[in-house]
Design a protein around this nucleic acid. Structure first.
Lengths: 166, 166
DNA sequence: CAGAATGGGTTCCGAAAGGGAACTTGTCAA
DNA sequence: TTGACAAGTTCCCTTTCGGAACCCATTCTG
């Protein structure tokens, strides 16, 4: 499978990755959520090659995750801002961040904390069920075909042979 | 910045991406959560080049996300299973999946649904504050330095000049 | 017993993507 | 007139990837 084919996969994760499934793209988005908006700022903070940055910003803009907004005319200059679609990636970024805080931080602890404005506490994200509100983990969920499933789609139900799940 | 330097970054997202920030890695993990465990199964389902698959499985194993478990001797064969550390990535995968369901599905709707065993409903993930339980979005959070912050670390507070946030 | 099959890789090649640095363009300020 | 800025673009060289072939220990099939 080539990379350009990913967005035609019948899988929401694959389609998501066709937009953000790249080393640099998620770091660019991290900066966006920290209110970084301009080309040179991205470049300096990330140490990314300029043409790679230009490419990623272009793709994110085309995907509707960022939009270019002029902040001055003559010479025209534009900055990149998250759209609603882009802001909606926050839970995903936060989930990755929290995993890193938990499993990849040195003994000093996480380098950056997030405070919830509404309640005032330093907080991390908890993923809960949209229906019952209980926290979710992998073992609590089963998968089944949805309306967009291709014909003949099979959800693997059990390990190949040795029946019992650890 | 080269890729091997990423895990030394003072940023939990960067460190997370040093493990899973790769096109194929997250798709391999998707398969793991669908209970796919064997080399040939990954290869067939993903259409990934074999040496790339071998490399990703090796890296995920070294990172402690997967572990190799023998399922037969003579000839010895091993399969890859998620560890607790790997299972803990589920909320991140789910968040990316939900974003894809919402923004990248065709008009047919998402191809795969997830049902919460505990409550029986088809559900998606909601990200809530660990302290007050309210749903979180990007605008509800502020960042501040944590215990692992490098000296002189500055959290960008406001857009560079044109003060007002849209 | 020979030969094919199985599972999990490794090797090789040409193509694509990335790192790094230099060059371009439009505009204003000194 | 020269310099500085911001935002790219171009070039060259190295690394990684896609695709196919090959390898190896063991077991099955004829």
């Amino acid at each position: 499978m080539r990379w350009e084919e990913l967005d035609r996969e019948h899988c929401s994760l694959a389609r998501t990755l066709s937009v953000v499934g790249d080393r640099w793209t998620l770091l660019v988005l991290r900066e966006c959520f920290l209110r970084i908006r301009r080309f040179e700022e991205f470049e300096q903070r990330l140490g990314i090659a300029r043409h790679v940055l230009a490419d990623r910003l272009k793709k994110l803009t085309e995907a509707g995750v960022l939009e270019k907004i002029p902040y001055q005319e003559r010479p025209r200059r534009e900055e990149y801002r998250l759209t609603e679609k882009g802001l909606a990636l926050y839970p995903a970024l936060l989930a990755l961040l929290d995993w890193g805080d938990k499993y990849m931080s040195g003994k000093e602890g996480p380098p950056l904390l997030r405070r919830h404005k509404a309640c005032g506490h330093v907080a991390h994200a908890v993923t809960v069920c949209s229906e019952c509100g209980e926290p979710l983990d992998a073992r609590a969920m089963t998968a089944e075909p949805g309306p967009g499933a291709p014909a003949g789609f099979v959800v693997p139900q059990r390990p190949s042979k040795s029946a019992v799940d650890k």
